[in-house]
Computed example of a mutant assay.
Amino acid sequence: MQTQIGIKQENLSKIAHSLCQILADEFILYTKTRKAHWNVEGDDFYNKHLFFEEQYNQIDEIIDGVAERIRMLGHYAPATLKEFLELTHLTEQTKENNDSKGFIKELLIDHESIIIHLRENITVYANEYQDLGTSDYITGLMETHEKMAWMLRSHLR
């Protein structure tokens, strides 16, 4: 049964595809944050181990929310690593060391990349696709990433 919520089917497909890309980005970021949690080393190990856990738990909630938004629009969410790697704007590669600053720099770059991508699409959802709900949802998601990026950035000063 088609979703009838006042948005053209063509636009629902475009929105869902865009959200699938966001979901992939979130999943890659989640995985990289888990990696930081598991592999961080140094004098600040315990504090950063807990900090990264808090961050990946937040991203886990985001992942579920994005997937549910895709389903609300009548589409299926990607759920395989292969699909995520094909859809993401991020890279799984890490270039830094296993110390907290190295992980924080890498994760901050990814959060900022996601923020820019979300910001660029807020008005697209509202104006081009006539979907104020997704536009509002993405605005909130962007604000969450802005706060998470701020937390990461604060550790580098």
Rank of each mutant, 00 (worst) to 15 (best):
H111V: 00
S13N: 13
Q130W: 00
D136I: 14
A24K: 03
T144C: 02
K147T: 14
R153F: 12
Q55F: 08
E120R: 01
K35W: 00
Y125Q: 04
H37I: 06
L87W: 08
N98P: 07
L90W: 00
V40R: 09
L50N: 08
G102L: 01
G133F: 05
L73Q: 09
T91H: 14
T144S: 05
H155C: 08
T31C: 08
E120W: 03
G102Q: 09
M142N: 11
I28Y: 06
M142A: 15
Y76T: 07
N11C: 12
Q55N: 02
T139N: 14
T3H: 01
S100T: 11
I114G: 07
D43I: 14
A67M: 04
I7P: 02
Q2H: 04
Y125W: 03
I15D: 10
L73S: 10
C20T: 09
T139A: 15
H89P: 00
G140C: 11
I115G: 05
Y56C: 00
E26T: 09
L87S: 01
I115A: 03
L118N: 10
N127V: 08
E54T: 13
G6M: 04
H117M: 13
L19S: 05
H75M: 12
N57K: 08
G74F: 00
I15G: 01
H17D: 12
E128T: 13
I59L: 15
E143F: 13
N121L: 09
N47R: 13
N127C: 09
S135Y: 01
H49S: 02
A77C: 09
L141S: 03
T3A: 11
F27N: 15
Q4W: 10
E61T: 13
N97W: 03
T80D: 04
L81Y: 13
I28E: 06
H17Q: 11
R69Q: 07
E146G: 03
N57T: 13
V66M: 03
E41C: 11
K32V: 06
E83K: 15
E96C: 10
T80K: 11
M148C: 07
I116C: 02
D60V: 04
F103Y: 14
D136N: 15
E146R: 04
N47H: 11
L118V: 12
Y137I: 04
Y129W: 10
E128R: 05
G140N: 15
P78E: 14
K147A: 11
K82Q: 14
Q9F: 00
K147G: 05
E61A: 14
Q2A: 12
H17C: 01
E41T: 11
H155Q: 11
A36G: 08
F51H: 10
Y46P: 07
I15C: 00
I138Q: 01
Q9Y: 04
N39R: 10
S100V: 03
L50Y: 08
K105V: 13
E120K: 12
H145A: 06
L107M: 09
E128C: 01
I59H: 01
I115F: 06
A67I: 06
S13M: 11
I62K: 09
E83M: 15
E68M: 08
